[in-house]
Each structure stands twice: as structure tokens, then as C-alpha cells.
């Protein structure tokens, strides 16, 4: 009986090593890459001709438009 109990305890101790397998869960998928299909870049089209800077300028101007202090004055 003692032998069996110590066997079970030893087994449990070994099994608890599994806890060492816990990894940080921060999602670390590569940005800008779809899991399955590659997604188009939003600036890779006729309007922006794959010019990221131009696209960002357009969006920044649009975002600034939300500031009514700038728009009014």
C-alpha cells in the first residue's frame, strides 16, 4: 500500500512539471500578415499606388478633420 501511495505521489510530482510548459500568452502573430491569406495593404491600389506615406498623409488629414477647433478657427 505504501509503495502504491508513493508511486502515485511521485507520478503526481512528475506530472506537475507540466506547469513549466506554460508560456506567456501574449499574441505574437506577425503583424500585417493574415493567418491564412495574405491581405492587401490598404494603400496598394490605384488611388495610392503602394505609397504608404501618401496614404498616411491622407488619413492624418482626415483624422485631423475630427478636431473642430481646427476646423472652426
Amino acid at each position: 500500500m505504501m509503495k502504491a501511495v508513493s508511486l502515485v505521489l511521485a507520478g503526481a510530482a512528475v506530472l506537475s512539471l507540466a506547469g513549466c510548459g506554460e508560456k506567456p500568452q501574449t499574441v505574437s502573430a506577425k503583424p500585417g500578415v493574415s493567418a491564412a491569406k495574405a491581405d492587401d495593404k490598404p494603400y496598394n491600389n490605384d488611388q495610392f499606388k503602394n505609397d504608404r506615406a501618401a496614404w498616411e498623409r491622407t488619413l492624418r488629414a482626415r483624422a485631423d478633420n475630427q478636431n473642430e477647433y481646427k476646423r472652426v478657427n
Binding site: A29, P31, G32, V33, A35, A36, K37, D39, K41
Partner: peptide, 18 residues
């Protein structure tokens, strides 16, 4: 099924086919 992905601009999108 890992169907989410993030764009370069931090937008979280998903693939409905998956």
C-alpha cells in the same frame, strides 16, 4: 482555428472562410 490577424496598423480582422 486561428482566423484572426492584425494589420500593420493594429486593426484586428478575421477570415470568415475559416
Amino acid at each position: 482555428v486561428n482566423c484572426f490577424y492584425k494589420t500593420e496598423d493594429g486593426v484586428v480582422l478575421h477570415d470568415k472562410d475559416l
